[in-house]
Design a protein around this nucleic acid. Structure first.
Lengths: 112, 112
DNA sequence: TCCATATTTCTATAATTATAGAAATATAAA
DNA sequence: TTTATATTTCTATAATTATAGAAATATGGA
């Protein structure tokens, strides 16, 4: 199930946090962030972080499905690129929803 | 395994994000945030969010273990209180680590 | 002390996620 | 077209997490 704009905020957030909830995936994400907006081929990524093959595919799939990454084809390579806006949205969610009445509260968000 | 100051950042972050990665737990957390720094007894919390008994205990345990909450005794009630600082730290991590080179980068963090 | 309440632990089962090898698919280059 | 590379899908198994009822523990009040 891929997340889109119709997905309720709670569902998106839970799915995205779950996708961040693994040391391996955080490591993968950090490496992709370092790669910047040009992204990185799966093979190179795997070599860089020491996670390859079907396990890497499995983790990337979860992150794509949660909306943290997207992928583009470049010949026979698949380039993974971080969706920075989604990550920012998640960080904002955390402050807005989870620090309400503690100085970070914002009114008017629709929780779906 | 309870998180403390010695826990590597990556391990804390992965564990905390995993603890946020469930709609039920996000719902619980939001209710506890609304309760503010006085927290909320488990029974009242369960009634409010519609998750009770061993399932609620199970979720709270994960959140406490990840450092998102702590618990205090008040007679025979157990009061759960959000650790706002930890949530802020998590939000900061997301921006610092995962939006680096995209405008949110900070130097000098030790990734453990 | 006895009782009611609050919460946890125990136990079991279901569901999901993780790990990994092998085969399959897709594509570019020779 | 053949070959090598890149990645996925398939399959299987292990590990973790979720759900839930029942029994156990802890505490305050009658």
């Amino acid at each position: 199930m891929e997340m889109n704009q119709q997905t309720p905020v709670l569902t998106f957030a839970a799915s995205a946090f779950a996708a961040l909830g693994s040391e391996q995936r955080l490591t993968i994400l950090r490496r992709l962030v370092r790669a910047g907006p040009n992204g990185m081929a799966i093979g190179d990524l795997g070599e860089a972080v020491g996670i390859t093959g079907s396990v890497l595919t499995h983790h990337l799939k979860q992150m794509v499905s949660a909306g943290l990454l997207h992928q583009e084809k470049d010949g026979r390579r698949i380039i993974s690129v971080v969706d920075y806006d989604q990550i920012r949205a998640l960080s904002d969610y955390l402050i807005a929803e989870c620090c309400a009445d503690q100085g970070g509260h914002q009114e008017g968000l629709d929780h779906g």
